[in-house]
Design a protein around this nucleic acid. Structure first.
Lengths: 213, 213
DNA sequence: CTCCTTCCCAAGCAATTGCTTGGTAAGCAT
DNA sequence: ATGCTTACCAAGCAATTGCTTGGGAAGGAG
C-alpha cells in the first residue's frame, strides 16, 4: 500500500508552478475540488485521500491548508449559505410585489445551480445529518431564515390577493424549496438543457400549475 | 422484542420450505431496523455494529441473515421499487383521464410516505451513488420506467387539452418527482401535519399553481 | 550567501470498518 | 439419547479511515 507508484507527484507541470500564491487562492482551489467530490460521492464516502489525489498531492498535505475534513465542508456550506442569503435579500430589497418577488426567489435559486451546483448538492444531501452537531448549528439558523423569507412573500401574496388564499405558506414553501434545491441532482452544467428553460418551466408550473385555465 | 417468539411451524407442509419461514420474519424485522438507520444517518455512515446494536445482537450475528451490508440496502430498495411500480401501474389500470391519473400518481406517491418513509429517504439519498454499481443497475431501469409512466400521462393530458401545451413533460416530471419524493425529509409520521393536508396542498399547487385565476 | 517561511512528501499510528471463524445453547425429530 | 438445524456470541483479522510527525526543497528577504 505504501509503495504505490504515485510518489512522483508533478506530472507535466514543473515545480515552478508551486510558486508563492495567496494561501486563500490555493484553499479555494482545494475547496472546489473537495466540493465536487463531496457532491458526487457523498461526504462520508469521500476520503481525504480522494481529495488529495484529485488535487495532485498527498493526503497529509491537505492538513497544511485545513484543520480537518470537517472544516472543509464547513467552509463550503457556510460560504454557500452566505451567498444565498445575500441573494435572497437582494431580491427582497427590490421592493416589488409578492408575485414578482416570488418569481425572483425561484429564479435566483435556480440560477445559482450554475455556479454553486456542488454546494447545493452537498447542502441537500448532508446538511440534515450535519445539523445535529453544534458546529453546524448555523445550518438550522439559516434554514429558519430561508423559511421566513419565503413564507413572508407567500403570506403577502395571499393578502394582496395575488395568491390563492387556500394555500398554506409553510407547506407551499417546502414544496417550492424542495423543488428548486433538488434540481441540481439531474441538471448537467454545459448540457443541452439550458437553465433558462428550466426556470421558465418551473416558474410556469409553480405559479400557474399544469392545468389549462 | 428480543423474546424468542419461535414460529410454530407445526404444519410442515412442503419439504421445499425447509422451515425457513421464521427466518423471513426475522429478516424483515432486521431490515426495518436497518432501513430506519440508513434513512436518518445515511448508508455509509451507518455501521453494521449500529444495526446490530439497535437489533440487540452482535454485529457478526447479522451475517447469519445477510451476506453483506450491501445486500441489506439492496433488499430494501428493490422491495420499495417493486411496491411503487405496482402502485403506479394500479393507478394507470384504473383507466381514468390524464388529470385524474396524474392526481392519482401524486396521491399514491405521497401516501407511501407513511409506510415506506425510510425506503423513500434511502432511495432519494443513496440511489444516485449506488446506481453506478452493476449490482444496482435495476435502479436506473426503474428510474426509466417511472419517467415513462409520468411523462406519458403528462403528454396525454396535453393532447386532450386538460394540460397546457406549453409544458415540457420531461421537465415537469422531474419537478413533480423531486417534489413528492423529497417530502419524507421533513414529514414526521404521527405528527400534527397529516398526509391528507400535504396531499391537498401539493395537488393544488401542482395542478393549479399558487396564483389566483 | 544565509535565514525564514511556505508547501509539500514520506511514513505511519490509533481507531474504525465490514466481515470471518469457531463455538454453543436451544429446539425439534427420530 | 442422538443428531440436525437455527440463531446467536466471542474474538479477531485485514483493510481503510482521518490525522500526525518529521523532514526537505523552493523562493523571497536580509
Amino acid at each position: 500500500m505504501a509503495t504505490t507508484g504515485r510518489t512522483t507527484r508533478q506530472g507535466s507541470k514543473g515545480r515552478g508552478e508551486r510558486g508563492r500564491r495567496g494561501e486563500a487562492v490555493r484553499q479555494a482551489e482545494l475547496l472546489g475540488i473537495a466540493a465536487d467530490l463531496f457532491a458526487d460521492r457523498g461526504y462520508v464516502a469521500t476520503t481525504v485521500r480522494d481529495i488529495a489525489d484529485a488535487a495532485g498531492i498527498l493526503s497529509g498535505s491537505l492538513y497544511h491548508h485545513f484543520d480537518s475534513k470537517e472544516s472543509m465542508i464547513d467552509e463550503i456550506l457556510s460560504t454557500f449559505i452566505d451567498q444565498t442569503l445575500a441573494a435572497y435579500e437582494g431580491v427582497i430589497a427590490e421592493g416589488k410585489g409578492p408575485k414578482e418577488t416570488f418569481e425572483g426567489l425561484v429564479c435566483t435559486s435556480l440560477e445559482s445551480m450554475v455556479e454553486s451546483r456542488s454546494a447545493i448538492l452537498i447542502y441537500q444531501n448532508e446538511a440534515r445529518f450535519l445539523a445535529a452537531q453544534p458546529r453546524f448549528s448555523y445550518l438550522t439558523a439559516a434554514h429558519r431564515k430561508f423559511e421566513k423569507i419565503w413564507t413572508d412573500v407567500l403570506k403577502q401574496g395571499v393578502k394582496t390577493g395575488e395568491f390563492r388564499d387556500s394555500i398554506d405558506p409553510k407547506l407551499v414553501y417546502r414544496l417550492v424549496r424542495d423543488t428548486v434545491w433538488t434540481a441540481p441532482r439531474w441538471y448537467r452544467p454545459g448540457g443541452s438543457l439550458k437553465p433558462e428553460k428550466i426556470i421558465e418551466q418551473y416558474m410556469a408550473v409553480l405559479v400557474d400549475g399544469v392545468a389549462k385555465h
